[in-house]
Simulated scan of single mutants.
Amino acid sequence: MTTVGLLYPGHSAEDDFPRIEIMLDSDIRLPLFHTETGEDARRVDELRAMGAPDLLAAGVEELRLAGAEALVWTCTGGSFVYGWDGAHEQIATLARAAGMPASSTSFAFVHAVRELGARRVAVAATYPEEIAGLFAGFLKAGDIEVVATRGSGIITAREAGTWDAELLRELAVGGDHPDAEAVLLPDTALHTAAYIPELEELLGKPVLTANQVTVWEGLRLADRRAWSPKLGTLFATRVPPPGTWDTRGIEVRE
């Protein structure tokens, strides 16, 4: 059995993770601990407060007792708003507290894009434009070319959690770009697990969503490869391209 612990802010799309467990149809487990969110607002100050070390550390012991082998801060905005270096320090602090490999959804996107061998991506975000731009900047710091960035002006995770399949399709299509080799939907409050193959067929290219890449990242840190075409191109390749499957993560043990 492989167990990946998830630190998840709020409750907007928590049911994506039991759904992903079923899709993986294996001995993979994804125990989840809810972190405090404060005010539900996609503003830089609120997102930084959401990712504060003391809030993240609160769930570490519970996930350790659940047998977690790796830990992922299941939040995109609460990571990339710290910038590339600050997000690394955030996760290094979490890894030290947990005594296990750790990462975040923001870094999961960077690693997943590299896994696909993509060079140019489009960002289709629910966030306000300013926050979507910060995510694009984070990707650029990870040597990923962002050819288009779309923000949708959604202020709260609660609202994003109510989006249905039609709104999700509109988001993906509206955020796509002819030069993009993959489209990224960076919001863990969106329900996306059930729709990824449909979105990929619609766009004709890989689609990476926040909850999908979060699980993939945790499995990467645990050195466990899972195969499930129901979760899109990222999970549809049994053998990774040479040099792309890198088990190195932030592994701080004390």
Score class of each variant (00 low, 15 high):
Leu208Asp: 08
Ala13His: 06
Lys140Arg: 15
Pro206Asp: 09
Thr105Glu: 11
Ser228His: 07
Glu21Val: 12
Thr105Asn: 12
Arg158Ala: 15
Asp187Leu: 09
Tyr195Glu: 14
Ala108Met: 07
Val44Gly: 03
Pro241Ser: 14
Val113Lys: 00
Leu219Asp: 03
Ala66Tyr: 05
Pro53Thr: 10
Thr105Val: 09
Ala98Trp: 05
Ala70Pro: 09
Trp163His: 09
Gly243Phe: 07
Tyr8Ser: 03
Gly174Ala: 06
Glu14Gly: 12
Ile131Ser: 03
Leu167Arg: 15
Asp85Val: 07
Arg48Cys: 10
Trp73Tyr: 14
Lys140Glu: 15
Ala58Asn: 10
Glu254Ile: 01
Ala165Ile: 10
Leu167Gln: 15
Leu184Arg: 05
Thr126Trp: 03
Ala66Asp: 12
Pro241His: 08
Ala66Gly: 08
Phe80Ile: 11
Ala182Met: 10
Arg114Tyr: 05
Leu221Phe: 08
Ala92Cys: 10
Pro18Val: 11
Leu55Gln: 09
Glu166Arg: 14
Leu219Gln: 02
His34Val: 12
Ala52Gln: 13
Thr209His: 11
Val213Lys: 02
Phe109Cys: 10
Val215Gly: 05
Gly78Leu: 09
Leu55Ile: 11
Asp143Val: 00
His191Ala: 08
Leu219Arg: 01
Gly218Met: 02
Arg29Gln: 13
Arg169Met: 07
Gly86Ser: 07
Ala236Trp: 03
Phe33His: 15
Leu202Arg: 14
Ala92His: 10
Ala210Asn: 10
Leu6Asn: 01
Ala236Glu: 12
Arg119Asn: 12
Glu217Ile: 02
Ala68Pro: 06
Asp25Tyr: 01
Ala165Gln: 11
Pro197Lys: 03
His191Phe: 05
Ala92Ser: 14
Ile250Val: 13
Gly142Gln: 11
Asp54Ser: 13
Gly86Arg: 01
Phe135Ser: 08
Pro242Cys: 04
Ala112Arg: 05
Lys205Met: 08
Asp25Ile: 00
Ser152Cys: 12
Ala87Trp: 00
Ile20Trp: 01
Pro229Asp: 11
Phe235Asn: 06
Leu168His: 03
Glu46Met: 12
Ala102Phe: 05
Thr74Asn: 15
Arg96Thr: 09
Thr156Tyr: 05
Pro229Ser: 08
Ala141Thr: 03
Arg224Thr: 13
Val207Asn: 01
Pro242Thr: 04
Pro9Met: 10
Leu139Gln: 06
Leu190Asp: 03
Arg19Trp: 13
Ala68Asn: 06
Ala210Leu: 07
Ala132Asn: 08
Leu116Ser: 06
Asp246Ser: 12
Glu130Ile: 02
Ser104Arg: 07
Ser12Val: 06
Ser152Asn: 13
Ala122Thr: 09
Glu170Arg: 15
Pro31Val: 09
Leu7Phe: 01
Thr2Trp: 02
Pro197Ala: 11
Thr162Val: 05
Leu47Tyr: 06
Ala157Phe: 03
Val60Phe: 10
Ala157Gly: 15
Tyr8Ile: 04
Ser79His: 06
Ala49Arg: 14
Trp216Cys: 04
Val44Thr: 15
Thr2Pro: 12
Val113Tyr: 00
Ala118Asp: 01
Val81Tyr: 04
Gly249Ala: 12
Gly5Met: 02
Leu30Ile: 09
Ala102Gln: 07
Leu65Tyr: 13
Ile154Tyr: 04
Glu251His: 14
Glu21Met: 07
Pro178Val: 13
Glu201Ile: 00
Gly174Phe: 06
Leu24Phe: 11
